[in-house]
Design a protein around this nucleic acid. Structure first.
Lengths: 147, 147
DNA sequence: CTAAAACTTAAAGTTAACTTTAAGTCAAGC
DNA sequence: GCTTGACTTAAAGTTAACTTTAAGTTTTAG
C-alpha cells in the first residue's frame, strides 16, 4: 500500500492532481486509515488506465463512468470492451491526423531550407501550385487538397 | 477574396473563432473594406498553417509569433525553419506516445474479450503478471514496465 | 511529549481557447 | 429607400483540468 506522496513520486503526478482525480470519483474503492488515502494495486492499475484513457482523449467524467462500471462487476464487461474499442478508433484517427500534420511540417522544413538556399521565396512561389519536385509535390498536395 | 462567412464554411470553423484568431494577431496583414474583413490567398494559407501548428500542439500566442516573423521577411527564415523542426520533434514524440496508448487499448480489448468468453476475470488474473499468451505478453509488458 | 513532515478539506483561483451577448453597422435585393 | 442577412465590436461567460490557499489533522522521528 502506498501513500499519496509515494504515488505522486512514482507516477510523476502532483498530489493535488491525485486528490482531484479522487474527488472526481476515479478511485471509487480507495481505502483510508485515519482519513489518509491508501493506494493499493487496484489504484495503481486504475492510474495506468486513467493515463491511457486520458491519452486517448477521454474526459475525466467518462473515465469516472468506466471506473463505476468496474465496481459494478462482470455485467459491464461488454460496456467496458466497447469503450476500449471506441477509444482505439479515436486514437487511430488521431494517428492519421498527426501523420498528415507531420507531412505538412516536413514540407515546410523543405520549403524554408529551399528559401534559405535561394535567399528568397520567389523561386519557390514560381513553382508553387504544381511544379514542385515530385517528392515534395506529394506532401504539398496532401496538405492543400480540398477543405 | 472571401468574407468571414465564406471562410467559416470552407474550413468548417465558426466565424467567432476566426474573429478570435484575428484579434489574437494570427492574420496580421488582413485587409478590410468598410470595416469588413477580406480573406485573401495569404489568409487562406495562413489558416492552413494555423491548423497544422495547432495540431502539432503549438499555442495561439506562439502561432502569433510565427505570423509576425512572416511579416518581418527573409531575415526570419531561420527562425521559421527552426520552429517547424521543433514541431516535427514534438509530433514525432506524440506519435510514439499514441502508439503506446494504442498498445494498451489493444491489450484491454483482448482482456475483455477473454473475460467475456470466460465469464469472469479469474483465469485472466491467474495468468496476469507473466503467463499471458506471447502476443499479449508484449503489449502487457510495454504498458506495465516501470513508472 | 513534541516538532516537523505529510497528510486532510473546502473553496477560490488559473489557463487556454473559445463562445455568447448586446448593440450596432454594412451590403444586397426589391 | 428599406428590409434582411451578414457583418462589426467590446465585454462577459464557458469549460476542462487542474492548482493554490488557508486552516487544520495525522504520522513519524527524536
Amino acid at each position: 500500500m502506498y501513500t499519496i506522496g509515494q504515488i505522486s513520486e512514482m507516477f510523476q503526478i502532483p498530489a493535488s492532481t491525485l486528490r482531484y482525480y479522487d474527488r472526481e470519483g476515479l478511485f471509487p474503492e480507495m481505502e483510508r486509515t485515519g482519513g489518509i488515502r491508501r493506494f493499493g494495486e487496484r489504484e495503481v492499475e486504475a492510474l495506468r488506465v486513467i493515463e491511457c484513457l486520458k491519452a486517448s482523449g477521454l474526459e475525466i467524467r467518462d473515465i469516472k463512468q468506466f471506473m463505476a462500471w468496474c465496481v459494478e462487476g462482470p455485467s459491464t464487461y461488454g460496456l467496458r470492451r466497447q469503450l476500449f474499442e471506441t477509444r482505439k478508433k479515436a486514437v487511430e484517427e488521431e494517428l492519421r491526423q498527426l501523420n498528415k500534420t507531420l507531412d505538412m511540417l516536413n514540407f515546410k522544413c523543405w520549403y524554408y531550407d529551399t528559401a534559405i538556399a535561394d535567399g528568397s521565396e520567389d523561386k519557390l512561389n514560381a513553382m508553387l501550385p504544381d511544379k514542385l519536385p515530385p517528392k515534395m509535390q506529394k506532401l504539398y498536395d496532401s496538405c492543400h487538397s480540398k477543405e
